[in-house]
Amino acid sequence: MRYLCLIYDDEKKWQGLSQKEQEAGIAEYGAFTESVKKNGHWIAAERLQPVHTATTVRIRNGKQSTTDGPYAETKEQLGGFYLINAKDLNDALQVASRIPSAKWGSVEVRPIWETTRP
């Protein structure tokens, strides 16, 4: 089964950290990524730029509208994701609990909707 682990944490907190603390956080992420690559859980991952760089697009009656900012304003922001392979939900939750941000933010685990194209 494939699962998407959505990482939510407080961008402002991260921005307020010293360079040394940020480097320690990045190193922790590096170690986590290495470990999930080794044990075969890893499929893909991306880190996103802060929500102030987000644009939300809608089409209504054929007309395109864009608004600055994310779709949802939240206290903790979507900061990135890991796409993983796991035996089942429990296995996925074990992996998600090792994502460094699970210690200071939240990780939402969602199964992928496996569609077969006709």
Binding site: L48, Q49, V51, T53, A54, V57, R58, R60
Partner: peptide, 13 residues
Amino acid sequence: SARWGGVEVRPVH
């Protein structure tokens, strides 16, 4: 889905 929902575009770091 942009026609009935919304699409958030975020640059990747």
